[in-house]
Design a protein around this nucleic acid. Structure first.
Lengths: 240, 240
DNA sequence: CGAAGAATTGAGTCCTATCAAATGCCGTGG
DNA sequence: CCACGGCATTTGATAGGACTCAATTCTTCG
């Protein structure tokens, strides 16, 4: 893997055991057998990205794909005048490299310290050709992402600021829950600006809406997150 | 194929020749050999849907997948209170059935008269298992859809009404162009309400924006479509 | 020709954006 | 330990773009 980012710390030793990988069962790798995992380890390059560094940028040739193993990544597009839309947050277990052809269609920044399992495009292609069940798994991931994207279109196009924020918090709770941290306290490592750019709002509106929900006793704002004080009422608002 | 829709006219004869299919090369079927196409013909069910009829509804068990061969379909989600978001328009060559698990995640209506090539889920699954290159093709389609969805998120979250409409018109021009109808006159078989629900606007705003663009001499409004009088200026606005 | 639906136009309002200022939060260094 | 500087966040005041409600005009089609 030729790492594109100056911030990228490539570990040129073999990836530490895939078998022991904490996110394996939640990732695309869940479709692989023990033998295949060993094969994978030989091809994978562990990479770490410090908080606020860039994994890759929109338009850059897409040399690698990544499996996020820890940390959180923001995926975003920008217009020439600077307007930014975050198209998703990648959590541990998520795969980066579905929606790109030769060049990346969006940029990706590490929000906190991120560890990822990288594969060069050639290695990735070879792997796909050799392992149809891996392709099936990738396709499952792609269709799942597509479903999420459609849900997000509904949110962006038709929901109010308060609904947007509530849906976002419930979605994050569910996503953290799926990777082993179910709790009414939802970690929010991203900034208010990130949340705004994900929900199609301004930072001020996000802040005001947080304040309003806190006054309502719907949520409790805690350092780097929120506690959901009334998930049922929130679910009612989110109900699709 | 058990057709779910009362409006659906299933043709229980074999599909008329896939080889002669006008949209084959633009569809998922482009990945198949002549032999495989013959196999496909045996499994496919031609179906027609009159204008304004429903192909399937959100939440309904997904028994079939479809290849659109003619006409245009709107794909949309609705909230309990009636707010609607169109997540896409399916044109000839497009495949319906990527983003669903057991149930359809969105509804689909024929806008004008639609012809489709239907496959039952079991037949579809069997086909995927037997033909890895078909799966690759489907995966290509899925990632392409994902890229479009991300572009749409940018549009819905960060663009103004005028930009939304301009981007929409250019996108439709390009899509019609790809299936063999390149022209500065862009057919718009869908209603203003459909366009509004696709762009996250109201019908009034869409109408006003059309009028404004026409006054600017940027477009010329014609029956069931528009003529782009200044594609360059439009492209400048759309530039991402 | 007339009815019904679709689209346009008009007037006024509201939600969210914008501009601006104050407050809070940390990490640094005296 | 605490003052300071820089940044993120919150809060306030105002403005504006899109929405809402309402009426008119245009199409389509029996």
């Amino acid at each position: 893997m030729d790492c594109q980012s100056p911030a990228c710390g490539v570990d040129h030793r073999q990836a530490s055991s895939c078998l022991a990988c904490k996110v394996r069962l939640a990732s695309v790798c869940a479709s692989l057998s023990v033998d295949e995992l060993e094969l994978l380890e030989a091809m994978a390059q562990d990479a770490t990205f410090p908080a606020k560094s860039t994994l890759f940028s929109q338009g850059q040739p897409a040399h690698s794909v990544y499996n996020i193993t820890s940390g959180i990544v923001r995926l975003y597009k920008v217009l020439p005048d600077g307007r930014r839309q975050i198209v998703g947050f990648a959590l541990p277990g998520d795969f980066l490299g579905l929606a790109m052809r030769d060049a990346f269609g969006f940029s990706a920044d590490a929000i906190d310290d991120v560890a990822a399992c990288g594969f060069s495009r050639p290695a990735y292609s070879a792997l796909i050709d050799a392992k149809p069940h891996l392709l099936r798994r990738l396709h499952q991931f792609a269709t799942h992402e597509l479903t999420l994207a459609q849900e997000q279109m509904m949110l962006l196009g038709r929901r109010t600021a308060e609904e947007k924020l509530i849906c976002f918090l419930l979605t994050m709770q569910e996503r953290w829950g799926k990777i082993g941290k179910p709790s009414v306290t939802v970690p929010l490592p991203m900034s208010r600006q990130d949340i705004a750019d994900f929900l199609g709002l301004t930072i001020e509106t996000v802040s005001r809406t947080f304040t309003k929900l806190a006054r309502d006793k719907t949520i409790l704002i805690v350092p780097d997150g929120v506690r959901l004080m009334n998930p049922d009422r929130m679910a009612l608002v989110a109900a699709a």
